[in-house]
Amino acid sequence: MKNLKTIALALFVAVASISVNAQTKKIDAKASTIKWVGKKVTGEHSGTVNFKDGAVVFKGKKLVGGTFTVNMTTLTATDLTGEYQQKLDGHLKADDFFGTDKFPTATLVIKKIGAKAKDVYAVTADLTIKGITKPVNFELAVKGNTATTAFKVDRTKYDIKYGSGNFFQGLGDKTIYDDFELAVALKF
């Protein structure tokens, strides 16, 4: 009986320490950033989009999860100004691209994390854009209260085919490449 009580107590302490070690940290949506670059045959455009909210989950110092929501209505080009910026912003928010009236948010949910190096993780996540969820893979570096990553997304997997040379012929120098690049910095 004494051994059973000792085992039960040890099990309780182990479970309690795991629960205590699991910590969810909300991101600071205003201080966290998402920068994007979209390229075409004749050049590129770059800009930003803002987080709505999000959180990372740690067990001790090890990253074990995270969920993020992006406010797609904040999508804007930063390489243009005035009328040209307004036109591009409007087109990116239109149904040809992200359809922000119907789909005002995008989400990323971490599904699998593996250690790549000290404070660097190999992440598999579900990315949902325009109501379509597809897996993405990227490396995430964590240092202090910041996590950073850069990765590419194939827009055509989310039914964003406008100007894609893989779906339309004869576009010439109007072709827009399928991948767009994201550089993300999370502050928590």
Rank of each mutant, 00 (worst) to 15 (best):
K61Q: 13
A125T: 00
T105P: 04
G65H: 11
T42A: 11
T67M: 09
S17Y: 10
A16M: 05
A115F: 00
A125P: 01
E181L: 09
V20S: 00
N3A: 04
Q169H: 04
V153Y: 01
K30W: 03
K112Y: 06
D89C: 07
D179W: 09
T124M: 08
F68M: 14
G163K: 12
F68L: 11
F98A: 02
A29L: 06
G99S: 14
T124A: 09
K102W: 06
G144H: 04
F12E: 00
I129F: 08
V153I: 15
L171W: 08
G65K: 06
I110H: 07
P104T: 13
A183T: 14
T107V: 14
K40Y: 06
K52A: 13
G99N: 15
G99V: 00
M72N: 01
G90M: 08
R155H: 12
K130H: 11
V49T: 01
T81E: 12
V64W: 07
T156F: 03
Q86C: 00
V15Q: 02
F180V: 03
D173Q: 03
V13D: 01
L108S: 07
V70M: 10
A31N: 15
L182H: 11
G38H: 06
Q85R: 13
E181M: 04
E83G: 01
D173I: 00
V153E: 07
S17W: 11
I18Y: 12
F51K: 03
L63H: 00
A150D: 02
A106Q: 05
E181G: 04
V20M: 08
T42Q: 05
T148L: 06
P104E: 09
A10P: 00
A14K: 02
F12H: 00
I113H: 05
T6P: 00
Y177R: 13
H91I: 10
T175H: 09
D101A: 14
I27W: 12
D179Q: 14
Q85F: 08
K157D: 14
N145D: 15
D173F: 01
V184Q: 09
K61L: 02
D154S: 10
F58S: 04
V41H: 06
N50S: 15
L11I: 12
A115G: 12
K2G: 05
H91M: 10
A125Y: 08
D173A: 03
K93Y: 05
E139T: 14
F97N: 12
G172M: 09
G163L: 06
K143T: 10
A125F: 03
L92V: 06
I7G: 02
I7R: 03
D53L: 06
